[in-house]
Nucleic acid binder design. Structure first.
Lengths: 339, 339
DNA sequence: CCGTCCCCTGCAAGCGCTTGCAGTAAGATC
DNA sequence: GATCTTACTGCAAGCGCTTGCAGGGGACGG
């Protein structure tokens, strides 16, 4: 492997000058810089990240903590983070928090403390107090996407407002018997997003003076299949059927659409369905949704962490609640209430 | 941040002994080891990966190259890799090869050459000659999953055999008019899996003495929507309809099932559909498939790279073609040909 | 023509570990 | 009891960079 000394020798300068020329820190005359760059290129020199990190204290590496890798939302956010970071020359090291509690603990107790990263992005994880504390102890910039955490800088989307927007859309179409598919209460213990979406739903209903019937709520597990079953229960009951369903995620909403089809209920003629997220399959299923642009969320998180790094200003945690954009995307799964 | 010196002082030994006690390399008496471990724990010491890497040349970090992060197959394999690697205390740094060609080049020309990783896993990427060469120049263990590459150690599943198995299943059920949904030829240029699956299909048909009608092939793009459209074309044509479809991926197969439903064609009564992959949605759609266990593929790749690292033996590239397991999973989307 | 200032460059001291080598003491061998 | 081993530990030299500091001009002003 070629080292900085060889480049220095070839360019006829000291290693200090090579370092400065290639990193852009400190003064180097234009001709010298050019000689160094030529030498480096001809030798195929690439700086050793370990040596550079040790000497400088900068790693050019961001740690990303993800609860699941194989769920659409998280992998999409991750994808946004990865492309934005790589564009700026940063590496990213991945910390996946599987179901295994012991392993999760070791991420905070060991992995992250190896000084391998300059900053951390945590995607939609409800962090425990101790975990939050561990993160703060790292003394590194941390950006959390999702669950607002008063002790960390967070990028959040206003879940209540999103849910209100979705519900208002249904109300504006004339619907009154609106059901809601959300998460079961025990889910909420460490994952508050479904609760907030439910609150938004209830607020919008209350604002419109429409009573939200408790029987029109069904819990599910945020999968297509879960949404399917919840919708089956909702639509298969004797008595009056809801004319619309606000579903707390697109995947569950797709399940609901499939359930309706199976029951011979036409969407949107007999039933309107709206989801939340902006899932890639939404277009195919013609699903009306409130998009939260997860890819861009990842990019924004990457930009935010780089901004903190480059400003050097370890700004006090400033939450920006509800700052992430969202947008109603009307497709074919919602329609006016038929008389 | 606490350093090794503090631990040494507290334990009353030299830093050399601390290093040996904590890393398990070299001899340390049991009582000394215990004192060191106690001291380290009480100070919350975690070794600095950069310093350790620089001194030892080992990073305890594996690079993973992924073509897409937000596609089910890749993120599932990645998930398997991540959990297996973290279990062994390894970090993983992610190199995402977006569509951007320039960025892709920089992964091989710069990112990977920073000496940040001890080994590389490449997931289902058809690597160009120059890229392969770059990887070999790294002089690190490399494991490629997927596309067999004679110059790298690869873990592959026998795509031809999988396709034969799927096709045989349909043939055994009595089907003769079997269509195939695969990839369009231009896709194949840098992605040979679809071609191999098609070959397996044709072989199985030929072996059974059944002519594979060219009109019964439809290309698609490996998405649900693509499969949907391909099936629409296949099933909407005037004339005799196929009684079964072998689809080259589960996602496309799901699309095909949805298309059939929309056309009022009953699955499996009027049409059998079989896919390949083992997609998580397969169960929900009752899709018969040939599972290739992507999660376990990732785990095996992780194990393989660690084995190479720990043996130290930079074994010559040994491809193990067709060594990865696959299995026919019969669910509800295939059935005997009705008379 | 000399002093100042500003660029540019090199020197050399680390960054926080790991590990070859050497030294010590205790146990083993005869 | 002398000599070898063997097990353990410490010393100190790096690993390949970065960067504070200082020195050497050239430009410029007086």
């Amino acid at each position: 492997m070629v080292s900085i000394d060889e480049v220095a020798r070839l360019a006829g300068v000291s290693t200090a000058t090579v370092s400065r020329a290639l990193s852009g820190r400190g003064q180097v005359s234009a001709p010298t810089r050019e000689r160094v760059e030529t030498a480096a290129k001809s030798l195929g020199y690439v700086v050793s990240s370990t040596a550079s990190s040790l000497a400088s204290g900068r790693t050019r590496n961001i740690g990303v903590i993800v609860p699941f890798l194989d769920r659409w939302f998280f992998s999409t956010v991750l994808s946004g983070i990865a492309s934005a970071l790589m564009r700026r020359g940063y590496d990213i090291t991945l910390y996946s928090l599987t179901a295994d509690g012991e392993q999760r603990r070791s991420v905070f107790a060991d992995f992250l403390r190896r000084r391998r990263v300059d900053g951390v992005v945590a995607i939609s994880i409800e962090l425990g107090d101790e975990e939050t504390e561990r993160l703060r102890e790292l003394d590194l910039p941390v950006i959390a996407i999702g669950g607002p955490n008063p002790r960390l800088t967070t990028l959040t989307v206003d879940d209540v407002a999103m849910a209100r927007l979705a519900t208002s859309h249904l109300l504006a179409l004339g619907h009154r018997d609106i059901a809601h598919i959300g998460a079961s209460p025990e889910f909420d213990i460490d994952f508050h997003i479904p609760t907030r979406r439910r609150q938004g739903f209830e607020q919008a209903m209350a604002d419109a003076g429409v009573p939200a019937h408790p029987a029109l709520f069904e819990p599910a597990d945020f999968t297509i299949e879960g949404g399917f079953r919840a919708a089956q229960r909702l639509l298969g009951r004797p008595g009056a059927r809801p004319t619309a369903i606000f579903v707390a995620s697109d995947e569950m909403a797709i399940g609901a659409i499939l359930a309706a089809r199976e029951l011979g209920i036409r969407v949107p003629d007999d039933l309107s369905v709206i989801g939340i997220d902006g899932h890639e399959l939404g277009e195919f299923f013609r699903l009306t949704t409130v998009d939260q642009f997860p890819l861009r969320q990842g990019e924004r998180a990457a930009d935010a962490i780089l901004a903190e790094l480059e400003s050097g200003a370890e700004a006090a945690p400033h939450h920006e609640p509800g700052r992430l954009p969202f947008e109603l995307i009307v497709r074919g799964s919602t329609g006016a209430l038929s008389a």
